[in-house]
């Protein structure tokens, strides 16, 4: 089935944001995933048509980047960081436990279509290790037990919040934001988690600041 008119219009809208249309391809593929649940041949065709390039070229790009999926992704993409630091701090054990619990292997989806499990690389949250991402939202400082709780809650349809962000949306909704269509939830969640503030807390306690600048009496 080919993509609907609204999606085609939005693909054009993305391409039009850039000085050269082809720069839109990465966000366009995110949009395809939000509509189709994965990168489909129809989605590739539509991108190729909008950009005036071949489907093979689009396909070459889609296969290069790990966030683009060929198989249908569940409502929730659960990524467990198993890069060295998180692995050592417990990420390996968390990943093993989730595989057992969900009865899936790496990059597989549960039979009910809710959870796709994958081990992922360092997600720039090492100070919150071991880290898990759900639909690319941070779930910080996990244990095997907490991780199991998260996936159980998601499967039961309970509301789950990122430890440093908003209530979790679905993977397709997340992909739409990545395509550059904001969902108006920027104001949910804190500015920073506790680890992000570790040094600042000490500076406040001790009264440490940067020196005063040239234009001000006091430092800022």
């Amino acid at each position: 089935m080919s993509l609907d008119q609204k999606t085609r219009d939005e693909l054009r809208e993305i391409a039009a944001r850039y000085p050269e249309a082809r720069s839109g391809l990465l966000p366009m593929l995110h949009l395809v995933q939000s509509v189709e649940g994965r990168v489909t041949p129809e989605g590739i065709e539509a991108c190729a048509e909008v950009l005036g390039i071949s489907a093979a070229e689009v396909n070459g790009v889609a296969t290069f980047y790990t966030m683009y999926k060929r198989k249908p992704v569940g409502d929730y993409h659960v990524g467990v960081c198993t890069n060295t630091l998180c692995a050592v701090m417990g990420g390996d054990l968390i990943f093993e436990r989730l595989k057992d619990h969900l009865e899936v292997g790496n990059d597989e989806t549960t039979e009910d279509g809710t959870i796709t499990l994958e081990h992922i690389e360092c997600n720039a949250a090492c100070d919150y290790a071991p880290v898990m991402m759900v639909n690319w939202e941070f779930m910080d400082n996990q244990t095997p037990e907490s991780a199991v709780q998260v996936v159980d809650d998601l499967r039961a349809g309970n509301e789950v919040h990122s430890t440093r962000g908003p209530r979790l949306c679905t993977w397709r909704e997340a992909e739409r934001v990545l395509a550059g269509f904001p969902d108006d939830r920027a104001d949910e969640g804190p500015a920073a988690g506790p680890a992000s503030l570790a040094g600042l807390r000490i500076a406040r306690e001790k009264g440490w600041t940067a020196p005063a600048g040239e234009s001000k009496g006091e430092s800022k």
Partner: peptide, 18 residues
């Protein structure tokens, strides 16, 4: 100079810093 010098991180604890 103080041991820690928050400049970029200085407003991270502000209310709705973003």
């Amino acid at each position: 100079t103080d041991t820690l010098t928050p400049v970029l991180t200085d407003n991270w604890d502000a209310e709705r810093a973003w």
